[in-house]
Each structure stands twice: as C-alpha cells, then as structure tokens.
Design a binder for these strands. Structure first.
Lengths: 106, 106
DNA sequence: TTGACATATAGACGATCATCTATATAATAC
DNA sequence: GTATTATATAGATGATCGTCTATATGTCAA
C-alpha cells in the first residue's frame, strides 16, 4: 500500500528542506519513533511532527503505530523512482518516449 | 568549466518550482534564447530571467552570449549526478561509504 | 546617433513555508 | 481515575519565494 509515484515538482518540494532531508536520512534504514528523531535534531517535537506529516502526505515515509509510539521509515523505493523520473524527464524535450538528445546539441 | 557538484538540499530547492522545471525541460536538449523560453511559458520575461539566474547560480544551466541574445542549456550531467547523489544519500544512515541497509530493515 | 530589440536588475506585493508556543488526543502505568 | 508519556494539531510570526511593473544595460540596424 506504499505509494509508488510522485510528480517531480512535488517530489522536489517535499525534499527541498534541510530538516526534512535529515529526517529522511535518519529513517532511511530503520523504523524510528518521533522522539528518536527529535533527539537527533535541533528542532522541537511539533516541528518534527509537521515535517513527518508532510513527508507522509507525499508518500515518502511509511509509518506504523505501536501503543503510544509512531514509527516512521523512509520509502526508499519512491525516492529512487522519483530520481530516475527526474533524470528521464530532462532527457527529452517532449512528453513522450521518442528519442531525442542522443546526438550533440547544436 | 561547468559545475559538477551541488548539495542535495540546494539541488532540491533549485528544481522545486514548476516554472523552473519547465525551463529545464525546454533547455534540456538544445540552446534556447530567453525569448524562445518566454514564448513557451505564461510568465513575463523578467520572471524567466529571474529563474534563469537562479538556475545559473546553482550551475544547473550553462549559457553563452551571442550579440543581443543569451542562450541557455541545461547542465544535464549535473542533474544526473545530483539525482544519483540523492539516491546514495538515503541509502546509508551515516556519512560514510560503510555498508548499511543491505538487509531487511527491522 | 537614434530607435528598436534582447536581456538583466530593482523594488513591491501576496503567497507559501519553517518554526515556535500552547494545547488537544490518546495510550500506558500506578 | 489520575498522572505521565508520546504524538498531533492549532495558531502565530518572521523569512523566503514567485511574480509583476518599471527601468537600466547593452547590441544591432538604419
């Protein structure tokens, strides 16, 4: 049920913040509770929750609740898909899969 | 003399705008004058110049002047490098090339 | 040299954003 | 039940951003 696509502009906006990229890095490889994340950063708990909600809305983190705690983990597959999508987007002039740019641009 | 690296946060900020991504796409495969770009978008010439200056500062476009005109072209290599860098950044918990995340995160 | 054209810069304005404090919600422990 | 802990939400505030109009700068043609 994790999200598999995201528009390149929305993806860029979602990751265009230092605090969010720090959160993404902290959660890239294991589940982290909100408190764990707060302890690693120099921002308040509501600020962390705010960024997590934003990343969650973009589908960039998965989460699971366990009692009092909520755990978050980066959706690494989506990051990869989006990055590949950006590379592809700027490899052709038009919105198709026609070939372009294979030769030397004049 | 074209730029070859760019911090992931700065890269994301630079491309986190629809107009700029449109400009990037227009210039991805050939040199375009400012006027050509303006004609393709629904924004004024100063707005386009503003975005071009921003992309130029980030090293994301190359440019050459020819008489009255200035031509811009996307630095596609840098886009690729930055995207690869983002994928790599969120594949390890720490700022090293030590292994991590190769198994199933618990 | 004067006028037309191409681009850049300056300054203003409204919108979005990152952060904070205060507080609500919900789960657990005693 | 009451206190404590974990997280989310609400609302405020200052900063950043995207866009516009007006204008400056620089190049070419007549």
């Amino acid at each position: 049920m994790t999200q598999t696509t995201l528009d390149p502009v929305l993806f860029a906006k979602a990751i265009a913040d230092e605090t969010r990229q720090k959160i993404m890095k902290l959660t890239c490889c294991r589940w982290r509770s909100v408190n764990e994340i707060v302890e690693q950063l120099n921002v308040t708990q509501p600020t962390v929750s705010h960024h997590l909600a934003l990343l969650r809305a973009a589908g960039l983190v998965n989460f699971k609740e366990d009692g009092k705690q909520t755990y978050y983990q980066l959706n690494r597959d989506l990051v990869t898909v989006c990055c590949d999508q950006i590379i592809a987007k700027f490899s052709t002039e038009v919105e198709s899969n026609s070939t372009c740019c294979t030769g030397e641009p004049q």
